[in-house]
């Protein structure tokens, strides 16, 4: 909702609107001109030190995801998995390009956010805060606050089918 309005504003008034939102303590799952959809985290069992976070990012202007942070994890990294000859390969990546207007899916089959050194068990239904750091093609850095809902560890399939928009 906030987003739909914000998108129609000029960038300057958009920033002002954001400031207003921040002052009002409003929590939006989108920041600046990047839209976040269906953010979720896979729940863990006690003692499991890491898990994955999944979402879809759509930037209105060409941007780059530089990283993420979360109060629930000591380290947050972006990884990319790929499947070849039934071998699942994992690779940490420094950044992820977000082409203008193209949804970039972070799911179990490709890019995903790794929450490492978890400070506590992530239980189904938990609201996990994530802060994404992005930079647009003008070099402007932005942070984006996201709340990801924890889904059951035994969730059969990857994100997207029943992703909730907003919270």
């Amino acid at each position: 909702m906030n987003l739909a309005i914000a998108r129609n504003l000029s960038f300057r008034s958009f920033k002002a609107a954001l400031l207003g939102l921040a002052l009002a303590g409003a929590c939006s799952s989108a920041w600046a001109q990047t839209v976040v959809d269906g953010a979720w985290v896979r729940a863990t069992v006690p003692g499991q030190p890491s898990t994955g976070a999944f979402l879809t990012l759509t930037a209105s202007t060409a941007s780059t995801l530089l990283g993420a942070q979360s109060p629930v994890a000591g380290t947050v990294q972006i990884h990319q998995s790929s499947m070849k000859d039934d071998v699942m390969r994992m690779l940490p990546v420094e950044q992820v390009p977000l082409p203008a207007g193209t949804p970039v899916v972070f799911d179990t089959q490709g890019y995903h956010i790794m929450l490492i050194d978890l400070k506590q068990q992530v239980k189904e239904g938990d609201q996990v805060p994530l802060t994404l750091t992005l930079v647009d093609d003008q070099g402007t850095r932005q942070t984006l606050d996201v709340t990801a809902t924890a889904r059951a560890l035994n969730q059969p399939d990857h994100a997207g089918h029943d992703a909730h928009h907003g919270h």
């Binding site: 896979r42 499991q48 030190p49 890491s50 898990t51 994955g52 990884h79 998995s81 499947m83 699942m88 799911d107 179990t108 089959q109 995903h112 790794m114 560890l153 035994n154 969730q155 059969p156 399939d157 990857h158």
Partner: peptide
């Protein structure tokens, strides 16, 4: 700690 292929 496998985020994807193992749980799925």
């Amino acid at each position: 700690q496998c985020p994807a292929v193992c749980p799925t």
